[in-house]
Design a protein around this nucleic acid. Structure first.
Lengths: 215, 215
DNA sequence: TGTATTATAGTAAGCACTTACTTACCTTTT
DNA sequence: AAAAGGTAAGTAAGTGCTTACTATAATACA
């Protein structure tokens, strides 16, 4: 074939030169994750993954026995980062009271604004009933919920918050923030509904804090 | 062919006898909507729609020029119900203050518990960037948000609520409720997280009302 | 009322293309 | 020379859609 005729997507610039096996595998997973986020598992073809990675389809099957294994490999990249705290929990060290909630809200809002790939991938995997979403919920999501729950408990013990179902309270808070992201990023509300991130965070944290305060 | 050999899914009992054209069209749309909710547009084949409807594939193309037109027909069934208020807005007539929010929360929670088909369909269509989600957001969803916004404005004017961004406040409230549904129904949290609907509604409405009250 | 005709609903078989995946071989690097 | 990375061509099965025909119900007429 004539290499000159081959369209070379920018993202595959470095596939012009040969990669090591490990590098190529990691690249395929990255590209696949983007496509699975855009189109879902069934909507993504191995042909399109190869095209976007700048390789032939057969290379994919040198690294993964089947398409499903490639999807599963994403789990290793994002959920099983072997020990080590998440970036968010690191951020929350030394934070107290209201600042914890502000930090969580700001982190989640800016994280998804900067890159909604993972939000979309997670949503697709929940709909497609893939283990990825199960594993994510059981690890990362529960980690955050449990952290918030223990923080809410402390605030109740200190008399700052009134007695209430702390798991429901944590869900209420996260629900405001995460649904805001879902509506803005997945449903396209960000085109018409524009607010400063700090205003959004302040409003949600105000509602939550004032709503939970002892009466 | 031998009728005896044909598998007759229960849902297609009445396709044993011929339907009128209009009846069949409506049945195909209903079955297709269920499948599009389960598998998404790309994950649903016209073969599977026909199988579930108990007809041959060619019948689908007697009523719809292509698969995409069948998907679009769902819009007619659920978003363009010609004038007439939604069931929820009817429920909210004569309701005041806190009762409005309780009613909205209870309606949305029980609606999705009873049948999460539409929630899944809408989520898939947002991810797949289909006009269905656009149209739903611009009609039904905005109708509810605007109703809540005007109600929140009234409460602010009456001095019950403090001055705040009423659109953000409406989003905060709906976010708690809708994300609760998403987590329970799509992410499978309902298997491990069980609460009385009334407790969930009370907690969310308490947080919102106390959070919005004048200080 | 029975029969022939017409209209309508439905099917079997097929088409062109796409899909996930394989294989035998080529090219480049060590 | 051997190992490793990569490709062109191919396979069997699946996909959206079409076509020529069949089956059934409704209607007209004797």
């Amino acid at each position: 074939m004539y290499k000159e005729s081959r369209k070379m997507p920018k993202s595959a610039e470095d596939s012009k030169k040969r990669m090591s096996g490990e590098q190529r595998k990691a690249q395929i997973v990255t590209v696949a994750m983007q496509l699975f986020a855009e189109e879902g598992f069934k909507g993504t073809t191995t042909r399109e993954i190869a095209r976007r990675a700048g390789i032939s389809e057969a290379v994919i099957f040198k690294h993964f026995s089947k398409k499903e294994d490639l999807y599963n490999a994403i789990i290793d990249q994002c959920c099983n980062d072997g020990g080590g705290e998440s970036r968010l929990l690191k951020l929350l060290k030394q934070k107290q009271g209201r600042e914890v909630f502000s930090e969580v809200a700001m982190f989640l809002i800016t994280e998804h604004q900067n890159d909604s790939t993972f939000l979309k991938l997670l949503t697709y995997s929940a709909l497609e009933k893939h283990t990825l979403s199960d594993i994510f919920i059981k690890t990362k999501a529960m980690e955050l919920i449990e952290f918030l729950v223990s923080h809410i408990k402390s605030l109740m013990d200190e008399g700052v918050f009134r007695k209430a179902d702390h798991e429901l309270a944590a869900r209420a808070f996260l629900g405001m923030v995460l649904h805001f992201n879902i509506a803005q990023e997945l449903y396209g509300l960000k085109k018409t509904f524009k607010r400063q991130n700090s205003d959004v965070v302040d409003t949600f944290v105000d509602i939550f804090f004032d709503g939970m305060k002892r009466r």
